[in-house]
Design a binder for these strands. Sequence first.
DNA 1: CTAAACAGTGGAGTACGGTCCAAGGTCAAG
DNA 2: CTTGACCTTGGACCGTACTCCACTGTTTAG
Lengths: 121, 121
Amino acid sequence: MRIGELAAQAGMSRDTIRFYEKVGLVTGRRLANGYRDFPPEAVPWLQYVRTAQTLGFSLAEIARHGEELREAPDSAEALSVLFEQKIQVIDARMAELATLRAELATRVDTGCPLRAVGRPS
Amino acid sequence: MRIGELAAQAGMSRDTIRFYEKVGLVTGRRLANGYRDFPPEAVPWLQYVRTAQTLGFSLAEIARHGEELREAPDSAEALSVLFEQKIQVIDARMAELATLRAELATRVDTGCPLRAVGRPS
DNA sequence: CTAAACAGTGGAGTACGGTCCAAGGTCAAG
DNA sequence: CTTGACCTTGGACCGTACTCCACTGTTTAG
């Protein structure tokens, strides 16, 4: 799969993919003519990258996680530990969101403006 | 309250607060000697800014939300609408997280490595 | 054979969110 | 009246994550 098709499938620009390759987020072979050649698995991987990114992980972190996964002993337990760690991060984030949500919901109910407690006017 | 104390209470640097003032995230009076003078409400406001930020809102968005709140007609309904909009944003974000969490949880259970479906080696 | 559509490279530029620094003003304590 | 802690400004600089550009090479369709 060449870069254009990967870009289309993963929903990002060619430039972004070249940039990701440069920082080690994706790796691909080269064809005889110098064109990049990506395996089909690159599509879900890049989609995962996008998701992780919107969840607040930096590209460096995501790349490191990818490294860990590739370097982990190929046991189900080792992988499970990694996934469980990520789930904990997600749970923490969700808890934060729930807190903020509750705060806002209270204000909806009471009509209490944020300004009364918050930003200086 | 001068900038140093605000910085200490809000857990950020003076430079950051000056930067936030420059982009309109906080506003303060000036004392006769030119020093900034912030009201005590600036503390929870800046804490809110930090929270919103970790939840993926840009400073521009946060500033705009602050504007909306200050400029909204001072009716409970108008404020409630704003809060409800924010809650919807939060709910969407939480849904994203829930999706990713489920994905990861599946992999923990099955021991299916991300690599098998993901990053090219 | 030519034109369009694709690919490559290097390097500059952008937006965001700070962070640091130099040079200087203000103020309270000793 | 000096020392030190605090404040001011402007501007340079940084890391992250792209984005665009110019110029060149390759492939494919007519």
